[in-house]
Design a protein around this nucleic acid. Sequence first.
DNA 1: TTGAAAGCGCTAACAA
DNA 2: TTGTTAGCGCTTTCAA
Lengths: 339, 339
Amino acid sequence: MGDDADVPRSPTIYDVAREAGVAASTVSRAFARPGRVNTVTAERVRVAAESLGYRVNPLARALPTGKTSIIALTISDVTNPFYTEIIQGAQSAAAAANFTMVLADGQESEVLEREALERVIPIVEGLVLATSRMSDAAIKMTARQKPMVVLNRSIPELPSLTTDNLSGVRQVVEYLVPLGHRSITYVAGPEASWADGARWRALVEVGAKLKVAARRIGPFPPTVRGGQEAAIKLSQHLPTAVLAYNDQVAIGVIKRLAAAGIDVPGRVSVIGFDDIFASSLTTPALTTVAAPLRQMGIIAVRNLLAVIRGAKPIAGTALMVPTHLIERGSAGPARDRKD
Amino acid sequence: MGDDADVPRSPTIYDVAREAGVAASTVSRAFARPGRVNTVTAERVRVAAESLGYRVNPLARALPTGKTSIIALTISDVTNPFYTEIIQGAQSAAAAANFTMVLADGQESEVLEREALERVIPIVEGLVLATSRMSDAAIKMTARQKPMVVLNRSIPELPSLTTDNLSGVRQVVEYLVPLGHRSITYVAGPEASWADGARWRALVEVGAKLKVAARRIGPFPPTVRGGQEAAIKLSQHLPTAVLAYNDQVAIGVIKRLAAAGIDVPGRVSVIGFDDIFASSLTTPALTTVAAPLRQMGIIAVRNLLAVIRGAKPIAGTALMVPTHLIERGSAGPARDRKD
DNA sequence: TTGAAAGCGCTAACAA
DNA sequence: TTGTTAGCGCTTTCAA
């Protein structure tokens, strides 16, 4: 009942074939590789298709070929501002190649992440795994099913892309030392996070070289609230400098410290990672290690597409995007006192 | 060269059929509606499938049925924190129904939005259009192709879901009046934004009722930078209260005003919309109109899925989610002076 | 270069 | 309830 306007079935290659007076396979060919446009026949097909408003049915194409023109980006939590730029970059690079991107969000749960992956694997041509919470072994298993590039994590057997944590940490330490800091406390993030391990190891390594003591507390959730928890522990034996797993944690630390009347950067310097949107807005604004995250998303997708098109994946050692320290207001001279 | 471990082709219903000693269609049925599990045969099929590790091929299923179990969420810019919670909610609701969600980002460009839509339409069963930059007419056209629900916009012919802007604005005005404000300046966002119009009209309406003058400047881009631009204009004739199109704009206004030595909320009160993550972190923290955005994403997807399953779309008047004012530090008493 | 025909893995009549 | 048989719209041999 009502208006059943009966949308006409969309035309198929057969309709076009009839219209153009050629075989269906000829139509198919004309659309399979639109590079060659010369032939007279091809031109006839084009015209016929145009006049009928024909569009190739991606589902039907995908069945015999497996080419769905879909890739997946899996992340551990959409809500984490860290991903914003990565998503943006990945999505735009996919769109530029006429690919559709599906977002698989793990909601910080390994189970949900797996489920999302399962759901998505059969329909995609490849995937970008950003900051997976799964084990290396599990990742390698799924990598055997479809082309994959790994983001923000280094797995020797797979094409990986990370930020240059070592350089980032070095910049932090080299910034802090002249300000009189002799010791840096690292506020750790999730244990399952590859970046967390990388950052801590970097701090130990650089610290050893530059005669700065590296301490560590945690793990804490990678959130503002996590940072607030950390601040409680921190205030028991206040360091002069803290390097947080990420900006949210850093912000949480600062907030809680401020609430306790402890001035940042007056009493303690706090530095974060990632340079999320909010970091420039807090008071004091956050000094942090930034990386070209959007670029990372773009590169990841481009590499993935290359592999899909048959390029040999370059594994072995992770590609790195550079990092740089953004000096804002949350770090300053070490307070003059015996530690 | 190297290890070509030759992943074995995944089993089909035919393999399962052979294993179970039944017809292929029987296998198909067993998986088509997994509700009925009773039959002896069905059980045999299940066992056979299990032993072979059979999984239905969603692509193959989609071809004859059109059921892809994919929906799309289109947004105008991933980078806008406003969408974060909506994406989250939508994605989790989709996952809960075993649907995959593709994200179609328009990157604030109508052209790109269209392209993304085109790409996605043939493969989805339905779509949620959040804050589209397209015209009503264009939206209605694409709504004829697939089930659709519209977010943050009201289109009489389509199921729509919006925040209760009128109530939100009323709460703002009722909060501001007792503080002595007699006039409120609205800093407008993009003209193509439905919410922008709704908020301004609400302010005019409520203002008229409560004897508060409503002024308006703009449009400005819905970003911090846009807010900064607005602040320049604002300072030419400083109002006592401003209501911004969204939080980013509000934050931009405050930043710029602060840079000019104009105190918020001392000299002027500033209120935003949306309660994005950063709003609680600024100084002063932002007073803003919040809405259950994640919930909105969930409801939108649930309604869409209902329509996909055959429910009659309820159009006519938009569903509304409630709004509430979050009082933080950016609004206070009107400065005592002749305006 | 083109056409004919088989088939991708599933679903959906229709019969049995 | 089960089996048989056509397709869904495309790609891809294989001949012509």
